[in-house]
């Protein structure tokens, strides 16, 4: 009983997060400017991380949580570097 409630709700959550990722992709492709694309990329990172968390909940595999941690770290660094690039035209001065 409780397992089926949980598996259905986790499946629904996965679908919702998948749609959110697709929408972020659409905004990333559409632009129109570089900053719009980077905001969408950042949202894509966060949504992907959340999707991995839900995967981890439905399978109880710890590696998913570690992957989510790595994604959140890399997402932060890459977005910060891209924002810096937009401001100055180079990442390391």
């Amino acid at each position: 009983m409780s397992a089926s409630i949980l598996s259905w709700s986790l499946l629904t959550a996965q679908i919702l997060l998948g749609i959110a990722m697709i929408i972020a992709c659409i905004r990333m492709i559409r632009g129109p400017r570089a900053q719009d694309r980077i905001v969408a990329l950042d949202a894509l990172y966060v949504n992907g991380m959340l999707l991995l968390l839900v995967f981890g909940m439905s399978t109880a595999v710890t590696h998913y949580f570690e992957a989510a941690l790595v994604i959140s770290v890399l997402g932060f660094v890459s977005t910060a570097a891209l924002a810096k690039f937009l401001m100055r035209g180079e990442v390391i001065e």
């Binding site: 397992a3 409630i5 949980l6 629904t12 959550a13 919702l16 959110a20 929408i23 905004r27 905001v39």
Partner: peptide, 23 residues
């Protein structure tokens, strides 16, 4: 199970609304 489902669906729903806003 019900509490976890509510929390996860709330989180996923809010994330989807945020992505919709992006669009």
């Amino acid at each position: 199970a019900i509490a976890t489902s509510c929390l996860v669906l709330l989180g996923a729903g809010l994330t989807l609304v945020g992505a919709l806003g992006l669009l």
